[in-house]
Structure formats: structure tokens, C-alpha cells
Amino acid sequence: MKRALVFAIPLAIFVVLALFLLRGLGLNPREVPSPLIGKAAPQFQLKELADPAKAFSEKDMAGKVWLLNVWASWCVACREEHPLLVEVSRKKAVPIVGLNYKDEPGDAKAWLKQFGDPYTLSVTDRDGRVGIDYGVYGVPETFLIDKAGVIRYKQIGPITPEAWEKKIMPMVRELEKS
């Protein structure tokens, strides 16, 4: 009996540790949960990329469910998710506002011309200050914002077709009902 315990306790500790470590393998250390989920989207007022004379604020989207997609022409992973965004805008599934992060407006416009422009509009955040307010640390990032202007979900890194089908689109549908 005692002998069995001497054997069982270290084994149990090992199994628990192994389970923790195994779970750790499946986690992406780059995905840091955002403290902004469930909070009001930080306020901003930025120039539009297409027409710098116009300003856009997150309040302009009040009453709508929308996506704020952080992108840049220097961002390689943005190209990965871009076809999906183009498809979403073609279907008019949900309005997408682009936050052009730390980019040259000229480069950004050329990039949109080359790959297609899925955005209702894009705004320029040249010095990345609005990005800091949104806790942006890796582009692309996408925020799902509800009618009341509350952030409901944050996608860090490119939106995968799986994340779109299983997480974002169902949430959009749900939020649009309310």
C-alpha cells in the first residue's frame, strides 16, 4: 500500500505537469489577451487615407456592428488575410474600417490598388498613437465592435477562414440582432 503511494504520487505530479506543458504547446505565446474586450472602444479622430481633408472618428460607426482592422503595407501577414477581407466586403457581410498603422499614405494607397480595397474607409495612424490606445502590438489585428461601441472580440494576427466562420461571423450575426 505504502509502496504503491511512493510510486503513485510522483507519477501523479508528473502527469499533471505533463498535461500543463502539453496544453502550453497548443497556446500561442504571441496571443496576449486584450484587456479591452468588453470595454468601450478607445476614442480617436484620424484623417481618412483616401481624403486627408476628412476626419473619421469611431463614433461615426455608432449603431453599427463593425470591424476595425489594423493593417499596413509593410505587414507581410496582412497579405495573408487580405483575400478574406475582400471576400467579406464583396458579400457586404459587415463594414470594415481600416486603421492604416505606421505607414506611408502613398505606400498604403498603392497596396490597396494592388490587392483590392475591402475597407469602407481607411484612416491613417502614422505615429501609431491610436494603435497604442487599442493595445496593438502585432499587425494585423482586428477588433469587433458592437452597436454601442463596445469591443467584443479581438483577433491577433491574420483572420483565418476558421476564425471567421466559427468566431467572428457568428458573433456579428448575434450582435446585429440586439
Binding site: R30, A77, C78, G128, Y137, V139, E141, G157
Partner: peptide, 8 residues
Amino acid sequence: QSAPSAPP
């Protein structure tokens, strides 16, 4: 490889 990229 496919991690979100950082500004250069």
C-alpha cells in the same frame, strides 16, 4: 513565419 509582423 506566419506570426503577426512587427514594424520594421
